[in-house]
Nucleic acid binder design. Sequence first.
RNA 1: UGGGGUAUCGCCAAGUGGUAAGGCAGCGGAUUCUGAUUCCGCCAUCCCAAGGUUCGAAUCCUUGUACCCCAGCCA
Length: 555
Amino acid sequence: MTEEAIHTSNFITQIIDEDLAAKKCDTVVTRFPPEPNGYLHIGHAKSICLNFGIARDYNGLCNLRFDDTNPAKEEVEYVESIENDVKWLGFSWNGEPRYSSNYFDQLYGYALELIRKGLAYVDELSPDQIREYRGTLTAPGKNSPYRDRTVEENLALFEKMKNGEFEEGKACLRAKIDMASSFICMRDPVIYRIKFATHHQTGDKWCIYPMYDFTHCISDAIEGITHSICTLEFQDNRRLYDWVLDHISIEHHPHQYEFSRLNLEYAITSKRKLNLLVKEKIVDGWDDPRMTTISGLRRRGYTPASIREFCRRIGVTKQDNTVEFSALESCIREDLNEHAQRRMAVLNPLRLVIDNYPEGQVEQLDAQNHPLKPELGSRKVPFTRELYIEADDFRKEGNKKFKRLSLEKEVRLRYGYIIKAESCEEDENGNVTCVHCTYIPESLGQDVEGHKPKGVIHWVSATEGKTAEIRLYERLFKIPNPGAADDFLSTINENSLRIIENAWIEPALQDAAVSEAFQFERTGYFCADSKYTTSEKKVFNLTVALKEDSQKAAA
RNA sequence: UGGGGUAUCGCCAAGUGGUAAGGCAGCGGAUUCUGAUUCCGCCAUCCCAAGGUUCGAAUCCUUGUACCCCAGCCA
């Protein structure tokens, strides 16, 4: 995955290729325009990779613009997290971050221009009345009684709006287009509304704020955007985008193209719902490792490259889609298999005693950090008489398919000796509490004539090993499409987090840095949790489990 | 019921009139001191349906069907 496809083709890049060939533009300029009303999620990653990817591939530019026209919903915490996430994903924007609010003065000027041209008017219908007058999908709307005010009257009234002389909802500015249009968004859309809210960027300078449809196209034009890429639900809005730019004095007219948003199984990509999970404390913040937010994936152990690769693989089209979660997991496994060092950790410990191994002896065995990459070197793993192995790796009686330890049978301890289980102790419930073995001293690092172990199992020294907390995750939701459920909170998987308080880890893992990925051999990929790991206590997150052969389940 | 969109393998997705790429998932088998990785093989006579045009159609035409989006002073 170190080699990323430089140029991935899709219907948008094909349009760009044509535009470039036809000299419609010289350098390609795109933008990523999130509203700072929440944290970015995997769906945004698709848009980020598309917009910044195009800028990279075409030697163009991509702006980061905060679409901040609704102060009631936005916060600086979100702008900071967004900048952080975009950078983390490996992209850098053109110049400084922009804000739609940077253009409030210009936007106001263009609104005045529309009024002067008789193309906008101050409406005093109530929100309810406006809805009534709008008509329905099949029936045309009707004109507001305020639609034919004079330019002078509108100018004066808009001035009053701006000066705070109207209460919220008592007046708004509307574009005068066509109340009978089959595009609902063209039935005299509201372009300015009154909000007595402090804006995170402009403070209390304004009490009227431009609407998205009026703001977005003009912001794009001001920034010289050549290809304005957004999601499918804005297809109708494109008519309004073009109408505004066609009716104001502005030279540049960007073009909008729409692609389908990403739907990921077992995930939600609705900021509103993500927000609810956080507010209701169903998850441990926006960066909960079970969340498919960028920050959640980061904390979980996903790498930027794996997310970029995922976005490359899913492609860009106009088809509605729901991508299987395994597609994402495949990307992180591929990356981590390549880059993560191997370590041993026992999650569900079972005591194992090697009866013929000297008591008190500690051998430092050499263990490769990566089986396919000798250049990554090795570390020492202490081997002692008493060890812990995974409880699942022992059965009193195995079978042909059971490639682990059972009585009278032999198995190799990873990086260590071949052992044979001789007996085991059980508690009153019949649970095995300890396995007694013998080892073959000459089997270290080599095969021994006449001995063919059934498999290889991992282990940690009971006396030299350390303990750590390990957090195992399952999908946050019980069903593939929680977003479509009437009550998505009822689809939460209550077993999505399982905490193992005392897992055993090899000593080398004590030094694991936060965000450093490891493969716990035969188990999965893990990383130290950025929030709960302390100097005394290591907490590891399961990023993704290793793939399991179907034979394993059958055994 | 108006308008805007979309229909190619279980899930993504190439294909742009010349006879169905690739990835994920799945299934066989080989190698393996990780039941991982790697490797090799299999996996759409068919492209929403039905007609039509053509020597030739997933691609063009016709008529249907299904699904998604639009009636916030949200974005």
